[in-house]
């Protein structure tokens, strides 16, 4: 039997275990991907006047759909709407079955795997490895506020374009 996860993905069919996803590759290449994202973020910021003219409300659905496609492929993104990937070594914390956003629980196995899904590497062990590659371990020490469930499904890219600080 498969245990229920705390933060189910929106609009994505659940992957059967064992997960052969790209997300472990993404963490291994966290440094390069983070550099790519920094460039992309600059483009998003630059597009703000254009986005504002079109209207953010009108853009929300199509952009969220593209973001979901890209980020679910690369990171198994759950579209929590308050992306913290850059502070978690590009390992999405919403893949933690407990949805933990502040670091690993005490149940991580000796082999670095998850307490709930023994065949899945702990997303926070991955996060620490990714953060080390990115040189962003300090960001792992920041405390995150509890998730705002109203924002689930919203585009984090548009928030970045608007200059909203992603938590």
């Amino acid at each position: 039997m498969r245990a229920e996860d705390a933060f189910p993905a929106r609009g994505i069919a659940r992957r059967p275990l064992p997960r052969r996803s790209l997300r472990l590759w993404s963490v291994r290449h966290a440094r390069a991907l983070a550099a790519v994202y920094r460039g992309f973020e600059r483009v998003l910021r630059g597009a703000h006047p254009l986005f504002a003219r079109i209207g953010y409300a009108r853009l929300e659905r199509p952009v969220a759909r593209v973001e979901l496609a890209v980020k679910s492929a690369l990171f198994d993104c759950r579209m929590c709407g308050q992306c913290v990937l850059s502070a978690t070594g590009l390992s999405c914390p919403m893949n933690c079955p407990k949805g933990l956003r502040n670091g690993p629980c005490g149940g991580v196995r000796d082999n670095g795997h998850c307490e709930v899904h023994p065949d899945m590497p702990c997303v926070w062990v991955q996060a620490y490895a990714g953060a080390e590659r990115m040189g962003a371990v300090a960001r792992m020490g920041e405390a995150r506020a509890p998730i705002d469930h109203r924002r689930a499904g919203l585009s984090s890219w548009l928030q970045a374009a608007r200059g909203d600080v992603a938590s």
Binding site: M1, A3, E4, A6, K98, L100, E115, P146, I147
Partner: peptide, 22 residues
């Protein structure tokens, strides 16, 4: 808290609205 799969009601909904730090 331990995950629900560890207990006698593995079919239960795990809440985890907060975590230990929040």
């Amino acid at each position: 808290g331990d995950g629900v799969q560890a207990g006698d009601h593995p079919e239960a909904k795990p809440v985890f609205d907060l975590d230990s730090i929040s």
